[in-house]
């Protein structure tokens, strides 16, 4: 299934990656080639097979309802959370103004 430049532009927008016309023109045939190649999966009869859900048989563990039991997974660490922020002000992350 080949993808044209318009489709790539749409996907890029969905993925929030800004791309110039040049880039789109370059990327479209590359993506087409890859997608054409993965199409061969369609040959496989999978009508009797379930999609894989867990690669190694294992069940989902549930954790106890405890606050900050492990500092690595708990809260109360605003400085650490904001430490790398490009724009942190008054304890918030700042972003360009959003109109809802």
């Amino acid at each position: 299934m080949s993808v044209d430049q318009t489709t790539v532009a749409k996907i890029a927008s969905l993925a929030r990656i800004k791309m110039s016309e040049d880039e789109l023109a370059r990327m479209a045939p590359e993506l087409s080639q890859i997608l054409d190649w993965v199409e061969q999966l369609g040959e496989v009869d999978t009508s009797q097979v379930e999609p894989m859900t867990a690669v190694i048989p294992n069940t989902l563990r549930l954790r106890d309802d405890a606050i900050d039991a492990d500092p690595l997974t708990g809260g109360d660490k605003r400085d650490a959370v904001l430490a790398n922020a490009p724009a942190a002000e008054h304890g918030f992350f700042g972003v360009p103004k959003v109109i809802e």
Binding site: D76, K77, V81, F92
Partner: peptide, 19 residues
Amino acid sequence: SGASTAFGAEPNTQVSLID
């Protein structure tokens, strides 16, 4: 994550690295 759900805390104080 293990961060608290309590209402009304100071901004970003109930945020884990996961959140």
